[in-house]
Design a binder for these strands. Structure first.
Lengths: 128, 128, 128, 128
DNA sequence: TTTT
DNA sequence: TTTT
């Protein structure tokens, strides 16, 4: 069946990179996705959406983006279940990103710019 | 910012229809979205995703679909926060459906078939 | 960059299956995607969208769906250029399907039903 | 039926703004959407996709974006037919944008920045 | 050249 | 007819 999620938003913090026992990289972060309209107090509302990324893209996220970065996510919705420390079963809904596009302008002379010059020209390998 | 979710799946139960104090219709249901592959035990895995629908579409859902119905959802991801009875703050992630398409074949002579004939020809008003 | 198209519609004809010189299967068909509202004459309008499918999914399409079948497509937009017989350069915009979901109910006792029983349980291999 | 297209890319030229006889604004432009990989010659390939925008969003496009601007489009695929000057019927496939998000960083002190300060805080009214 |  |  079909399950597709597309988001554009900003990281609320730097991504957290971990490795599974078998050595696969996993990055997690939460994405602030602004809604279209401000609320009554004039504050802009946002949805804070948990995102998981796997493998090489996880490492790219850890290396190239951080708190405040603007990204586009293309992935799917996943619902996991886990048992809290209080013994209660809980549900987590998160987006598994199949693709993460980095949308920030790279500053002239930034690390990203430099790195961009040394690596193959591909959105999959390096962000740009 | 962009926030879009597209799902195809089946209702795990009949939709629940409620009204807000101001009279707006809201339907909720959970959608079973099968993943592509079966797990080690040969069982098919699925994600169970909470869906909310508003206004006339909510009433259409309550009237025309039920447990087991196949639907396509086009909407956005929303994260709400609420306080549990234990005083703990919890988060709910759900899909707010902007469009619900009914994908089941209507049986010849079913209520749906009949109704289809009496109402204007529009996916927005009646499902088909 | 991001490029994603999601469609639900019906085939206007049986898919055409071909093979590239190197032996890769390609299926093409056009999808009638109904718009939401009827026009002034009360006729339902539709967009007729060219779709291309590659490899095993191409062969699945040729085997399992035909004129009138209801499918969901998840893919990307592609613009190709070619030279007409009049020497004029022309553009074709088509959807390259990465996933084709078959949404029709299989009739009891149909080939599809039988096949469903003999093959591994996966949306990627057999439609269901 | 479902018909959804989501794109991120750059304008190849400034948008063209026109008005229908009844006074509705329409903007058109073509979006260069880079594919993921470079071709054999090491050049980056792209799809050049025609986009149409209506009403206030059309005027926003004409006012705030131009050649080279990075945007995200959320809309639907449309196939139109027209008769060429040679009397031949032709087909055009284009994306009707329901939402256009402006993704470029506004330069400090730019018109966009200034305007941003004077207008209501909403992605629908002003880009940011 | 179009589907239910 | 194409963008960075």
């Amino acid at each position: 069946m079909l399950n597709r999620v597309i988001l554009i938003g900003r990281l609320t913090k730097d991504p957290e990179l971990r490795y599974t026992p078998s050595g696969t990289a996993v990055a997690t972060f939460t994405l602030a996705v602004n809604r279209n309209r401000a609320n009554q107090e004039g504050e802009r509302e946002a949805d804070f959406i948990p995102v998981v990324v796997w493998q090489k893209q996880a490492e790219n996220c850890a290396n190239y983006i951080g708190k405040g970065s603007l990204v586009a996510i293309d992935g799917r919705l996943q619902v996991r279940t886990y048992d809290g420390k209080d013994g209660q079963r809980r549900w987590v809904t998160e987006v598994v990103a199949e693709n993460v596009r980095f949308l920030d302008k790279r500053e002239k002379g930034s690390t990203l710019e430099q790195i961009g010059k040394e690596v193959p020209f591909s959105d999959d390998d390096i962000p740009f």
